[in-house]
Each structure stands twice: as C-alpha cells, then as structure tokens.
Simulated scan of single mutants.
Amino acid sequence: MKNDLNTATLLAAFEIVMENGEETEFGKRYEGIEASTDYDGYNIYLKGNGVELHIGFHNTYNLTYEQEHLKESFLKKIDAIVAPTVIDNHH
C-alpha cells in the first residue's frame, strides 16, 4: 500500500479516542471510532465503518476495508476527531 495516510494524524486520533472514549470490550470508542492496543503498546488499532487500521512499529500501517467509500468515510471521521485539536493549537 502506498503511504498516503498521515500517521501523525492517525496517532493523534488514537490519543483523542483513548482520552475521551467510552470503555468497550477491546479499548475505547469515541465518535464512532474504536481504538485499542496490544499488551505492549507497539501495535495500535482504529476501527469503524467496516474499516480496520493497524499501526505498527516505525509507523507502518495496514488499512483493511471492503469498499472504497467505507475507507473515505472512516478517514473523514478520523479527520473530524483531530480537526478541533489542530484548530485549538493555532490559538
């Protein structure tokens, strides 16, 4: 997969979900995105809208989805979660 996702944005979304989300069986859910990590924290996962994103060591990632529109919707949710933080940081 070509590296077209901004891992800094993805990691920021992960942090926001973990800070603000409600507990789930696997991690935390916020704004329709579920975030979880493995026992050592080297692998993190973001799930929602039929999409699963795995971010591993050295910011490698794997995005799994069945339809392109699901991926687009998922990435828009990620951007929406992170956007207020970006705006806040400029003031």
Rank of each mutant, 00 (worst) to 15 (best):
M18S: 15
T64Y: 06
Y39V: 07
H90A: 13
Y30L: 03
E66F: 09
G27F: 05
F14S: 00
E19G: 07
N89L: 10
S36D: 09
T24V: 08
N20M: 14
E52S: 15
G27L: 07
T85I: 12
L5G: 08
T85D: 08
F74R: 00
N59W: 10
I81A: 09
M1W: 09
N20F: 14
P84D: 05
Y30R: 01
T60W: 04
G50D: 04
G32E: 02
E31T: 04
M18D: 03
G41Q: 10
N6Y: 02
K71R: 15
D4I: 12
V17M: 06
K28H: 07
I78Q: 00
G32L: 08
E19Y: 13
T7P: 02
T9E: 15
T85E: 11
M1F: 08
K2N: 05
H69V: 08
E72Y: 12
Y42M: 06
V51M: 07
H90N: 10
N43K: 14
G48R: 00
G48M: 03
I16D: 00
T24D: 07
Y45S: 11
E22M: 14
G32Q: 06
D38I: 11
K76R: 07
E19C: 06
F74D: 01
E15R: 13
E15T: 11
D40F: 15
M1A: 03
F74W: 03
A80E: 15
L5F: 14
L53R: 02
H69I: 05
K47C: 05
G21E: 01
I16V: 15
E66N: 10
H91A: 13
T7I: 15
E23T: 09
G48N: 03
H58L: 14
N20G: 05
N3S: 10
D40T: 12
G41L: 07
Y61L: 08
I44L: 13
N6F: 02
R29K: 09
N62E: 15
I81F: 04
E66H: 08
N62F: 13
E66Q: 10
K47S: 14
I78A: 02
G27Q: 04
K77D: 14
E68P: 09
N43T: 14
Y65E: 06
L70R: 11
A8K: 15
F57N: 12
G21N: 05
Q67D: 05
D4Q: 07
V86A: 14
L75H: 01
I81P: 00
T64V: 12
E34A: 08
N49L: 14
H90I: 14
K2V: 08
V82C: 06
V51Q: 00
V82Y: 02
F14V: 10
E68R: 13
G50E: 07
N43Y: 11
M1G: 12
A13W: 00
G21T: 03
L75G: 01
